[in-house]
């Protein structure tokens, strides 16, 4: 029962990595329960909800954790309370609410029976943190109806008094939740070998040892057999249109304007088609079975990407037409 990583992946190759961010500004509808809490925050008030067993739960949950009943009875609580649990974050990350060392705490607000989880700021001093200590809310200046209207908690046994007071007429029903995660993508072995060839202006497909099918681009395996594509087969930059669509939606940042043709292209020497752009042809003249050739970017612009080929265009000479 032992296996070395990479034993079946064939040749070694220079690692290709590229950073990207997975991010979106999510817009969340809050529903009435979360919305009521966020509306209260915006007014500088803390509110909880009464659980099926009578406990006051802060922040309010929509459904009772034991009976699953929908909870609806709101109870006002204080913006001061007691720390019942905490941990110390010595090295905050960019995702954390404070940039200097701080504590996360579970704080039981006065009037509540269960704690709220939030940051506690002791100005970077871990020695101030104690279970049982009294803290109060530090409110944000411009409340928005978001959990971040509570900047954090801070030591103190009475309310700061700096409570935002606004007269909003409409309750909070939406909140923005921008979410950004950083990744460093590393291409697999098969992909990296393929991209190294594309970097040199060559379309080099791959096949499994003993397999009959050449894959462009390769993704690591012959998917039909589940065997690694360790052998390389150079293909032409001439292809046949297997099928296509005329797209009427723009590509952000691409100079090609709609309507443009996206085609499934089978490169000469390959057994599986890939998707790429067709251009320098009347869209109405594109046909299944049409023969096309790659139009490469200038060599100095080549990178590790299929868009080294700007697009494909029909083969010029009459004798080249007609397909394979």
């Amino acid at each position: 029962m032992s296996l070395e990583n990479g034993s079946a992946t064939g040749q070694q190759v220079e690692v290709l990595s590229q950073k990207f961010t997975l991010g979106f500004t999510y817009t969340r509808s809050t529903g009435p329960i979360v919305g009521r809490f966020l509306s209260s925050l915006r007014d500088g008030k803390m509110v909880g909800v009464k659980g099926s067993d009578g406990r006051v739960i802060v922040p309010p949950v929509e459904y009772d954790p034991v009976t699953a009943e929908a909870l609806i009875e709101f109870v006002d609580v204080a913006d001061t309370g007691e720390v019942v649990n905490w941990c110390w974050v010595a090295k905050p990350t960019e995702h954390h609410p404070l940039s200097h060392p701080f504590a996360w705490g579970m704080i039981k607000l006065d009037g509540a029976d269960t704690p709220i989880l939030h940051a506690i700021d002791t100005q970077g001093d871990a020695s101030q943190m104690k279970t049982g200590m009294k803290v109060r809310v530090r409110w944000i200046d411009q409340a928005q109806g978001n959990i971040k209207d509570i900047v954090c908690f801070e030591p103190g046994d009475s309310s700061s008094g700096n409570i935002p007071r606004h007269d909003f007429e409409e309750p909070v029903v939406m909140m923005d939740a921008p979410t950004y995660l950083d990744y460093n993508y590393t291409a697999g072995n098969a992909t990296a070998r393929y991209l190294h060839q594309i970097r040199k202006g060559k379309i080099v497909g791959q096949k499994a040892p003993g397999g009959e099918f050449v894959y462009v681009p390769p993704r690591g395996s012959c998917p039909a057999t589940g065997v690694a594509t360790t052998e390389e087969v150079e293909c032409a930059d001439v292809a046949t249109v297997e099928s296509f669509t005329i797209v009427h939606i723009p590509i952000p940042g691409n100079p090609i304007k709609p309507p443009y043709v996206v085609a499934n292209l089978l490169a000469d020497g390959a057994d599986v088609s890939f998707i790429h752009l067709l251009s320098e042809v009347d869209n109405d003249a594109v046909e299944i079975g049409m023969r096309v050739k790659a139009v490469w970017k200038p060599e100095e612009e080549w990178g590790y990407a299929m868009d080294n080929i700007r697009f494909w265009k029909p083969l010029d000479t009459e004798s080249d037409k007609g397909g394979q």
């Binding site: 990479g6 070694q12 697999g188 072995n189 992909t191």
Partner: peptide
Amino acid sequence: VSFVQSDCVRYAGAQNEVELIMPVVQA
């Protein structure tokens, strides 16, 4: 009847998910 796992490594480098799965499934 069988169980196989790969080494636990911090960084698998130039191995994508397919390349990580194939050896353990085959084994």
